[in-house]
Computed example of a mutant assay.
Amino acid sequence: MNALTTHSANSMSDDRPSELLPQFTILGQPVHLSNDYVSWLIDRLQHGIGTHVVTMNAEIVIYADRDPELSTIIHHADLVTPDGSGIIMALKLHGVLQPRYAGIDLGEDLLRWAGNQDRDYPVFFYGGKPQIVQQAAQKWQTELPNLKIAGVEHGYLDAEAQSKLLHQVQTTQPKIILVALGVPRQEIWIRDNFHLCPQAIWIGVGGSFDVWSGVKNRAPQYIRNLELEWLYRILQEPSRWRRALALPQFAVLAIAERIWGKDKPAR
């Protein structure tokens, strides 16, 4: 059966253990519970603790159920946040009340924090189409003039350009690395390259660059409050309907898990 446990992320360069966060398992995948993820992340950043963040939604859970590699990455991530409304629904079924915290909100909160610090917390933007990632970075540079941007690179690189990117990341040592390559590619890329900046926060941010660049609109707040942001995205991008099929599948499995306890053991 599901159980509320605690999880301590692996500290890579700190001399003290990080605070334990409660952890709950949904369909075999962990999610961490907190009312203040940003403060937890900032504390780790200030103490030089590298952090791989996975922003969990129903689609990722279904994908991980079929992909052992992604499931392993999620289980080894330092922080798994409840990104989607389906995750919040599943937690409620078990009596766990946890606010949703979308990956795009987490990215924005960290950028605003980094842009208002006297200390040096450079940010790296990687992924998306060339013009989109440039526009996203420029949007934040305009809004936060003091934000230090270590690099901006799109996600369509050949082997030589990818090698140069990795060298740039290692040389500049950004403290916040936002990766928009889509699931599971962004999670795999972070796992493979985490060692290059072992004191940074690495986050897969999916389609956030599209919104920040102005190419796509985010759902109005009242729609988000109704937990219908997923529907707004489908209406805006009808081609996403196949991906949305994961939502009813997840709901059925989550309800079955709650009623019959048919949860799968964590890998």
Rank of each mutant, 00 (worst) to 15 (best):
K175Q: 12
A150G: 05
D109F: 09
R119F: 14
L181K: 03
G103H: 02
H154P: 04
T171K: 14
V133I: 11
K148I: 12
Q173V: 08
T171D: 15
Q141I: 05
Q138C: 07
L178K: 00
L106K: 05
G128R: 01
K92R: 15
D158H: 09
P145Y: 10
E108D: 11
E153S: 13
K139Y: 13
Q98E: 15
G151I: 07
L178P: 01
E160N: 13
Y156A: 09
I177T: 01
V96E: 13
W113I: 00
G115I: 11
L157P: 04
K129A: 12
G128T: 03
A180G: 15
I104Q: 01
L91H: 10
D105S: 12
P130D: 06
H94I: 00
Y156P: 07
Q186L: 04
I177F: 07
I132K: 05
F125V: 03
L110A: 04
E143A: 13
R119N: 15
D109Y: 06
Q117S: 11
Q162A: 08
L178T: 01
T142R: 11
W113S: 09
Q168C: 08
W113V: 01
Q131C: 08
V169R: 05
K92M: 13
A102D: 02
Q186A: 04
I104A: 07
E108T: 10
Y126I: 00
V179Y: 03
K164M: 08
G107T: 01
L93Y: 14
A137E: 08
W140T: 03
I104Y: 02
G128H: 06
G151K: 09
K175A: 09
G115L: 14
I177S: 04
K92P: 00
K175N: 10
A161F: 00
P174R: 10
Q135V: 00
Y156H: 13
E108I: 06
V152E: 06
L166F: 13
K92S: 14
T171A: 15
Y121I: 01
L144Y: 11
K129E: 14
Q168G: 05
F124A: 10
F124D: 00
D105H: 14
L178E: 02
W113G: 01
P122E: 12
L157G: 08
V179D: 03
A114D: 02
P174N: 10
L93G: 05
Q162V: 00
F125K: 05
E160M: 08
G182D: 05
Y121E: 02
Y121K: 09
D105L: 12
L110P: 05
Q141N: 14
N116V: 06
Q134N: 10
I132Y: 02
